[in-house]
Design a protein around this nucleic acid. Sequence first.
DNA 1: ATGGAAACGGAGAAAGTCAATCCGCTTAAG
DNA 2: CTTAAGCGGATTGACTTTCTCCGTTTCCAT
Lengths: 213, 213
Amino acid sequence: MRADARRNRERIMAAARDVLVDQGPDAPLDAIAAAAEVGIATLYRRFPDRRALVRAVVLDVLGRAAEEARLALAEEPDAFQALARYLHRALDLRISAVMPALLDHMPLDDEEIAAIRTRSWGLFQQLIDRAHAAGTLRPDATFADIGMLLVRLARPLPGPIPRDLNNRLAHRHLELLLDGLRANRAEPAAPLPGPALTLADLQAAGDAAERSS
Amino acid sequence: MRADARRNRERIMAAARDVLVDQGPDAPLDAIAAAAEVGIATLYRRFPDRRALVRAVVLDVLGRAAEEARLALAEEPDAFQALARYLHRALDLRISAVMPALLDHMPLDDEEIAAIRTRSWGLFQQLIDRAHAAGTLRPDATFADIGMLLVRLARPLPGPIPRDLNNRLAHRHLELLLDGLRANRAEPAAPLPGPALTLADLQAAGDAAERSS
DNA sequence: ATGGAAACGGAGAAAGTCAATCCGCTTAAG
DNA sequence: CTTAAGCGGATTGACTTTCTCCGTTTCCAT
């Protein structure tokens, strides 16, 4: 593979990540090519269709997230600190904005995607379990809660806010959230209302909704 | 105005609120008409174009929010409790999902909209000021922080999650957030990192980005 | 009850948007 | 210097969305 071809391939992936997050999963492919400063034909040459492009983006981002989770587990002695570190990193990777945006177009049955997703989620679950075990993460905050809150933080705010500002605000708000997640032995907070979902519950609810539509 | 006409007008506004939030600000008007169970011609008869419909929706939702804020200020003696109550109500009104979704198509220079918006935001600011003054809201959480966090909570999560579940989760996560917002005299939290924006800052940043594009 | 004004629904024309291909030009690399 | 590999962007065709027109139905005052 020629050097310029490889370079362009990566430009396209990075642009796809950003444009798909900002404009939604049906963003025109021309827009992605333009953001990558590449002709539309170049995009089609590397990725025969939208599906292939999305697949590549998802694999890339899931892989990076898994690596960050592994490092956090390995390098941070304090369990809550490890979780916090991972969440900040995940925010930078935009994984929680990319994945849900691409839910519809993602080949969930794809073997390679399934494997890396299982691995990534497993490590995330470990981070949470360790913090629960250490007693520093409030016990009523579940995997699904933290995952969904990260989704809420990662998606860019609407309006013409510069990307950089958006990002710094997300980290600021994550800190606020972490203060809500920390267990407070002195004055235990009132238990959270509403459904304490596991990931399995969430998938089941989604599947049910899908079937009925 | 005939009774059926008035009824249909309200069905259209309610449908517009939901569809615009779920599908984004460019949702086809046919989709709104369908959701209202009304012919497309009926929609066009009441609202000559998208702009007019958006304007009506915005006025409606801003008005209701202002009323809720007024009631919270009047009826809740505890300042933090008043703020919490208003935030839960605002979540139900979906105001923080509707407004940002319609930012682009909104006639911000419209006199009537400007007036009700000023009123609504003023009341919200009062709720925050009172909680700050009472010392129950952490001092480094600004108006912009709370407003933007509400936006993050109000937008529906992506994926095929039923509306009702989505809503209950939003309230659950709001509770978690409120625990992060509460001032904790015993162990004061580390100050929030990043930009502590006022609303004016936010608008200035947005305007600057808009001009340069 | 009933006449008629008001309101309704949906087909369809016109305008716009997006995907995907083709072909002449450029560039990397041996 | 040669040449195979790569590139850009105009273009075509399929699809989507807006908005109007007109025959039918519904309300309501008398």
